[in-house]
Computed example of a mutant assay.
Amino acid sequence: MCRWLAYSGSPVLLEELLYAPENSLVMQSKHAKLGATAVNGDGFGIGWYGSTSTPGLFLSTEPAWNDRNLRELSAQITVDRVFAHVRASTGGAVQRSNCHPFRHQNWLWMHNGLIAKFSLVRRELMLAIDPVLFPLVEGSTDSEIMFYLAVSFGLAQDPPAAVARMVEFVEDVGRRAGVEYPIQMTVATTDGSTTWAFRYSSRGKSRTLFHSTDVTTLRRQYPDNPALHDVDDDSRLIVSEPLGDLVGAWQEVPESTCVIVRPGVEEELVPFKP
């Protein structure tokens, strides 16, 4: 499977997220602790927002631990919102167009999991994508198909409803094809202002997902930890697995839940039950 993180908050150097933590995302690319696979070396990607509404992308088929360009860029790029993903293919080719995050206009999307027996249902799923969007599909992954289905179903207007409709459709197509548990996912998407993250699977046994504890709470617990005083109160991380072992810093996202992170607003956890 894959590992990913979504950060929003006060500006930080990218290397502080990707390399500095004890269990950083780059470390997870070769030694994941909670993933379905320990090694996630089939490429990586980062998506971040700069001076325009369209996010930048850096995608590579290299393993994250072995990419010198990632190391160089991470020491120079300061971000206040970033998606980062390390990939373990579930069958799709190792090519740049299959690396996450995926982008459409101001939206980013990344996924850990799979559509079960994707080859059986791929054609019907692809034909449900809006014809205007269909030419934009570049790769061969189930993750990208999920993204463009969600965009087709109204992601820009109501993200939770669009993702729920996407899941309902995938499950319906899969079950008609004889697939008992059609979808497994932790998904994150953002429009550059708000982040939505989803933990869901047809079987009810989803891949791991965690969100960071409120920074003000951690400051009270660890008054002598300088890192906690360098970020804004509304800085948040959503991750496939914790980046460190600071007690109380991470909370597991419950099964069938959507996490919503808006600037200046306490994060919200709501049921997600398509």
Score class of each variant (00 low, 15 high):
residue 245 D to K: 11
residue 208 T to G: 03
residue 252 E to V: 14
residue 255 E to C: 02
residue 205 K to E: 12
residue 189 T to N: 07
residue 230 D to I: 03
residue 214 D to R: 15
residue 255 E to V: 06
residue 2 C to F: 02
residue 93 A to D: 13
residue 63 P to L: 13
residue 189 T to Q: 03
residue 45 G to K: 01
residue 52 T to C: 05
residue 101 P to E: 06
residue 26 V to Y: 02
residue 251 Q to G: 09
residue 248 G to I: 10
residue 228 L to M: 14
residue 58 F to I: 05
residue 269 L to V: 05
residue 81 R to C: 11
residue 40 N to H: 15
residue 68 R to W: 06
residue 234 D to F: 12
residue 105 Q to I: 11
residue 53 S to E: 11
residue 83 F to P: 09
residue 63 P to F: 12
residue 132 V to S: 13
residue 139 G to M: 10
residue 7 Y to C: 02
residue 89 S to R: 01
residue 65 W to V: 10
residue 258 C to Q: 07
residue 265 V to Q: 08
residue 25 L to A: 01
residue 93 A to V: 07
residue 184 Q to R: 13
residue 255 E to G: 05
residue 138 E to D: 09
residue 40 N to E: 12
residue 13 L to W: 05
residue 128 A to C: 13
residue 191 D to Y: 05
residue 18 L to A: 02
residue 103 R to Q: 15
residue 66 N to F: 07
residue 151 V to G: 04
residue 233 D to P: 10
residue 108 L to A: 03
residue 155 L to C: 11
residue 148 Y to C: 09
residue 262 R to C: 09
residue 118 F to V: 08
residue 46 I to H: 03
residue 174 G to Q: 08
residue 12 V to W: 00
residue 225 N to V: 10
residue 221 Q to C: 14
residue 258 C to G: 07
residue 199 R to F: 03
residue 230 D to L: 12
residue 86 V to F: 01
residue 209 L to H: 00
residue 50 G to S: 15
residue 213 T to G: 03
residue 67 D to V: 06
residue 174 G to W: 02
residue 210 F to D: 00
residue 90 T to L: 07
residue 236 R to H: 12
residue 26 V to A: 01
residue 84 A to S: 08
residue 72 E to Q: 11
residue 90 T to E: 08
residue 270 V to P: 00
residue 227 A to R: 12
residue 263 P to E: 11
residue 130 D to G: 15
residue 170 V to S: 04
residue 163 V to T: 10
residue 181 Y to Q: 14
residue 78 T to F: 13
residue 54 T to A: 06
residue 226 P to G: 10
residue 137 V to Y: 00
residue 117 K to E: 14
residue 195 T to P: 04
residue 23 N to G: 00
residue 69 N to Q: 11
residue 92 G to N: 15
residue 13 L to N: 09
residue 80 D to G: 13
residue 198 F to Q: 04
residue 41 G to D: 14
residue 273 K to H: 14
residue 267 E to P: 09
residue 82 V to A: 04
residue 115 I to F: 12
residue 163 V to W: 01
residue 168 E to Q: 15
residue 178 G to H: 14
residue 118 F to A: 11
residue 180 E to F: 05
residue 48 W to T: 10
residue 107 W to T: 01
residue 10 S to M: 03
residue 254 P to R: 07
residue 230 D to S: 13
residue 244 G to M: 05
residue 128 A to N: 10
residue 71 R to G: 03
residue 184 Q to C: 03
residue 154 G to P: 00
residue 192 G to T: 09
residue 48 W to D: 02
residue 55 P to N: 04
residue 109 W to A: 05
residue 42 D to H: 10
residue 74 S to K: 09
residue 24 S to A: 08
